[in-house]
Amino acid sequence: MPTTITLSVNGRPVTRTVESRTLLVQLLREHLGLTGTHVGCDTCQCGACVVHLNGRSVKSCAVLAVQADGAEVATIEGLAAADGTLHPMQEAFRKHHGLQCGFCTPGMVMSAIDLVRRHPTPTERQVRTELEGNLCRCTGYHNIVRAVLSGAETMRGAGDPGAAAAAD
């Protein structure tokens, strides 16, 4: 049954009519053209689709669009500043070569920011365990882990803009 929902996506109000079976990731990709959020599986295992819903990371393939009615959603497209300045976590991924094909990257970055919100000073083991829901086939994780540790450090220094981005 089509339902009209209103939510905030990357700080902008959005109203759309969706089927009850429409997934949040479909709303983002197909209705709003925000194709930075990816789909890598059909069993909620890969994490390519991670976005922030009311400041927490969720797999947007496991959330119905109607469940996001009234919510604040942040996607990879909303992270960088308007002038193109990258979020410290994005910058850390670039600096440490934490991405190759880039397909897992948006989900990785969104998960990493939420990880730092919950563990502002993570250890390598913590980063590895926390990223369990995000598959990367390219990097072998080594540089992703380095990027997350370094991004966490910058975010701490910068008064955690990640929390701000996640909540906007």
Partner: peptide
Amino acid sequence: VTRREDQRFLTGRGTYTDDI
């Protein structure tokens, strides 16, 4: 050198086939 392609991948502006 850090990679030039990363800017688009990190900001969700890559263009994979399903994005077209």
